[in-house]
């Protein structure tokens, strides 16, 4: 359910920018969503349709740039791929991992008319 709050927050950011630039409507929203973030693109889309209703972003398409998870492995001293939290380092099996990429939930840019 937090997806609705995130979708509302996203629509708020988009609409504020669109209004500031005197746009009539938003045709596309480009997002960056990390694999280790708090939301999946499909869930965000579902709630976006509700959150955007009646706003300048109502008919906008969502384009999502999906960032893969990446962590710094202490024993390896190297950056490794991390598909999901709780996984071990694919090289050494350690859990001493610090996530360095994949937590993004950001609006990159929008296309407006």
């Amino acid at each position: 359910m937090h997806e609705l709050a995130l979708a509302r927050s996203m629509v708020d950011i988009v609409e504020t920018t669109a209004r500031k630039h005197a746009a009539h409507r938003v045709t596309r929203i480009r997002l960056e969503i990390g694999a280790l973030s708090h939301v999946s693109p499909a869930a965000l889309q579902f709630f976006f349709d509700a959150a955007a209703y009646g706003t300048l972003a109502e008919h906008a398409r969502l384009n999502v740039l999906a960032t893969p998870g990446e962590a710094w492995c202490m024993p390896c001293g190297a950056a490794v791929q991390l598909a999901k939290r709780g996984d071990a380092c694919p090289r050494c099996g350690s859990y001493q991992l610090t996530v360095v990429r994949g937590e993004e939930m950001a609006v990159k840019d929008i296309e407006v008319a």
Partner: peptide
């Protein structure tokens, strides 16, 4: 909307803002 855009000028606005920025 996709058709209307053909007769309108489309612009791209850079935002680069975290969805949770306000919170």
């Amino acid at each position: 909307p996709a058709d209307r855009t053909m007769s309108e000028r489309l612009r791209t606005l850079c935002i680069e803002r975290d969805i949770l920025a306000k919170n």
